[in-house]
Design a protein around this nucleic acid. Structure first.
Lengths: 116, 116
DNA sequence: TGTTCGTTTGCGCGATGATGCAAATGTAAG
DNA sequence: CTTACATTTGCATCATCGCGCAAACGAACA
């Protein structure tokens, strides 16, 4: 069984949303948006009242979700926000959602009730 | 202390992302995107191998996060996807993210390092 | 090589989340 | 008013999450 919203379903990666479901991670995300030079784990940790190991884990989680990239610079690890990637993903989700709902309205796909 | 990304921070509601951080809720969200007539709790529950009470809770959570609206129709409660609201929120986040990062690049705001 | 600094990982604890079951609530029909 | 159906709400259980602490890892440097 396939849905008209299959492309939407592909775009809605739980990891993306789980990554931004935590207030601290959201703030880290915004800090990186304001800092085009990227930030090291230590620099980020200075701005939060939590242990640096926790900051490290949060940043790694954001990276694994595809929101950040990390580069080693000597002893330090610098995290960068992948702006265009994130912006593209969000816009694609919005577009797919609109397309899917429009298709549903115009009966471009069979109603759910008639499916096996 | 204020950040250039303050408008972005306001848009990034943890509840929105938490709502879509669960695979079952994502699928319910997509089902509603494909069904412009909305769905009752029972109709939704037919499509999932989980207890109907769990489905009810998932739908309520999606509603409380601002993704769905619910209307009572006799004994049944029908849930609808708030398409334009969700699409607008996603696009506003994408726009704010772009704006914030562009401002950071052009030094329209002070770098994080120089803040108190 | 040994030391130091930055980062990551292992472990445990308390809190939150997803789930199922049973009971309660709400609504329409007999 | 009683009954039947749809939904919601406790309650318990198990998994996951955020967190701190300590140890391990990695890279530069004396």
């Amino acid at each position: 069984m396939s849905l008209c919203c299959d492309p939407l379903l592909d775009l809605l990666d739980p990891r993306l949303f789980k990554a931004l479901s935590d207030p601290n991670r959201i703030t880290m995300f915004c800090q990186l948006a304001d800092c085009c030079g990227g930030m090291t784990v230590s620099e980020m940790a200075e701005r939060f009242p939590i242990d640096i190991s926790v900051v490290s884990r949060h940043l790694a989680l954001l990276r694994d979700a595809g929101l950040l990239k990390s580069t080693r610079d000597g002893k330090q690890v610098r995290y960068w926000l992948m702006v265009s990637d994130v912006v593209d993903r969000l816009r694609k989700i919005a577009d797919a959602l609109e397309t899917c709902c429009l298709a549903a309205k115009t009966s471009a796909c069979s109603p759910l009730e008639e499916r096996p």
